[in-house]
Design a protein around this nucleic acid. Structure first.
Lengths: 233, 233, 233, 233
DNA sequence: CATGAATGAGTCTTCATTCAT
DNA sequence: CATGAATGAAGACTCATTCAT
């Protein structure tokens, strides 16, 4: 807020070059800090991460942190905003224009998200949120609204579309959407929390492959098959 | 407020009686403390829970905590031990003796665990572990070994049995087991972290019902059907 | 608040003595802390006094401070409350019952307050308030209401009484009351701020003696008076 | 908000003109900074005023402050020097040449100073000094020497002159001089610290009028005097 | 001369842990 | 065994001061 880039074009006239260098640095700072914060929040959790550590890893002093983010909590919120929201936006934009079937779209989403969660800077967020949501209800609210709500909405719409076209068996998209992402989240969390100590227990890639297979088979309509054993749960 | 001085006048009557009460209390203490710790860890996370709060909710003094648990971390480990491990044991014992089909067994497990995760004292643990695993690798290891490893092992065995008997389509139990619990964990976390702020986004019961339906349909073998569109993902 | 002395009489039965000692210490703590805070606020001002210093001078640890006062500001408020308000109460109670003339009463008050302001623990307060009133409007309000307002009210009542009885020349007590205390405040501040560096500039006792003389002469009515009652104070 | 970029386009016209403006500005800078510092010290006290705020209110950058004043403390010293000392000089010069009586001179001084203390830039100084004298003994010393000592000296000389001429009753000017300024200081402080929160408690003008009346009556000699010259101020 | 980004020492406050009673 | 007053290390945040541009 105080760091608004006022009159950005003006400086070009005089010693524009020197300004340029400064400006580039100044503009890069928030990103560097966010990257440092992301990796530390992932490793240690929100509460256990000290601002000193963030500063050190970002290569700046403690005071500089507060030049760009007014508090630790705001730093985390900014992380959520910059790391997650754009991804959701991308997918939301994808849906209406997608040419293929609903199953293909789900396949695409699961595969892509599965890849994204490998990025520590992104996988961190769900992990931290799970741990800290109770302490910071406004963060939880923000995340629930901006990320989860919209992501589930997009998925539910896809599923409902598949149901309407007869591609999927009858069900409510709202009740099925969480099933699509549940294993993705589990894998993201797993990678960050348990894979380091027990790499043998789970092979994320094999699990995700099986997830897609099982999910789409499970969504398929009855057709003329005789697999009508499972009625009510 | 929570620290109601229950039965304050009782002890005055006689030593025998008061001692009885004392003794009974004394044995109950660890359990009361664990219960208090569990609910607080759930609500606020491990780092944000103060020993003061635990003492208050347990109705004892802060010093008493340290009579039973040498540190906050040990308190948490004890919580994991007492709250989770027995449940896993119970299920592990169930598997070999179970008379029904593999699908029935999975149905039983999912339903039962789904109910269990409603108990805040138990739902807490995964949530806290996710958030704190990075800080306390030995806890993560302990939990990965004692709980996750064994739980997944049990599930994998069931699935492999179902595959062997032709009840399920060919797959590795190891790769499928996580799919059984992923939505269960998601619901447990959801209940604790986001349900309070966005109760409209998800109906846990409906999701779990759909989970069971989708999962078992997805596990079913091909039979003589023509749903052979999904080969490799 | 959390330190409520519940069931204070009960302990007498058992090891009452040991409790006694503890209790005495615990009860003395707030006073010791207030005394330390008072002297430090006097010497250095509110903002420049570190809680570390207060703790050290009070002979306790930093944490102990927060056991009794939830913040630095509350510590200061408590100081105002305990150091000043009772004195004002004492004088307010004095006025209606006083047998002598209005002049005698003013003489008594000025002399007594003059003595009181020698006590560093009390002289501190006006000094600090002057410096910090702008930062802590609620403290200023509290002090203006509880101390200044009431003190001026008492003095104004005395003066109005003197005017009514013909002992003083016609004037409004409200406009004259501040004149009574102005030199007292000046002396209090002087003692704390400038006496140490320039002890020669002013002799507080001689000034106060002259103040009394000048004030009561100045209050005397015109007329054919022989107001030679006030000799030396 | 206070930092309005006044005349932003002016400099673009020509170098000669812009340089003029610059030069004029440059000379005005110290005064602008001092004015900003004065108003802020008044409002918030010395310690609670940030150099950021001073810079902003003065309309310059933080770095510029240090171009003119090497430190916060020196800034304050300069404030004392420029705001107060000249006033005292003016009065000191007045005394020997004054044609009227001692009472008239005191009347003049009290009235003038009473007006001056309305200027926030000047009323600030005593207020701040009171609060900070303990922290900055050299400031206190400087102020006690340069301002208080000389002011009291001037007043004492006037009073001694009045005593010598029989206009005043016998007394030491040194002991009476503080009485002249005590209510003035009280009013100055009052205006800054308490008038905002309790405007009803005191009417500074009425009090000062009564002060003059009471003081001069109180200074008058006993005897068969007819010093009934002073009616209303 | 002027700027404002960067610094880091210093301060308030919290909380796990200890120990005299 | 139980208590709770006391401790002090640690962390978030502020702000006077510096210096490259």
């Amino acid at each position: 807020m105080t760091t608004s880039d006022e009159t950005p074009g003006m400086a070009e006239h005089g010693h524009g070059q020197s300004r340029r260098v400064r400006a580039r640095r100044k503009e890069a700072r928030p990103g560097e800090i966010l990257a440092a914060a992301s990796s530390l929040f992932t490793e240690k959790g929100f509460a256990a991460t000290r601002m000193d550590d963030v500063a050190q890893r970002a290569g700046v002093s403690k005071g500089t942190l507060y030049l760009y983010f007014p508090s630790k909590e705001e730093l985390f919120k900014a992380l959520v905003r910059t790391a997650i929201v754009p991804s959701v936006d991308r997918f939301a934009a994808l849906v209406p224009a997608f040419p293929g079937s609903a199953a293909d779209l789900i396949r695409l989403i699961v595969t892509t998200v599965g890849t994204i969660t490998r990025d520590p800077a992104i996988g961190a967020v769900p992990k931290v949120l799970v741990g800290e949501a109770g302490n910071f209800p406004d963060i939880a609210k923000f995340y629930a609204d901006e990320v989860i709500g919209r992501a589930l909405g997009v998925l539910a719409a896809i599923i409902d579309r598949g149901v309407a076209s007869g591609e999927f068996r009858p069900m409510l998209g709202k009740d099925a959407a969480p099933l699509v992402i549940a294993p993705l989240l589990l894998m993201a969390v797993w990678r960050h929390s348990f894979l380091p100590v027990r790499p043998d227990l789970m092979d994320p890639d094999a699990v995700l492959a099986n997830h897609l297979e099982t999910l789409l088979r499970g969504f398929a309509p009855d057709a003329t098959r005789d697999v009508k054993t499972e009625e009510k749960s």
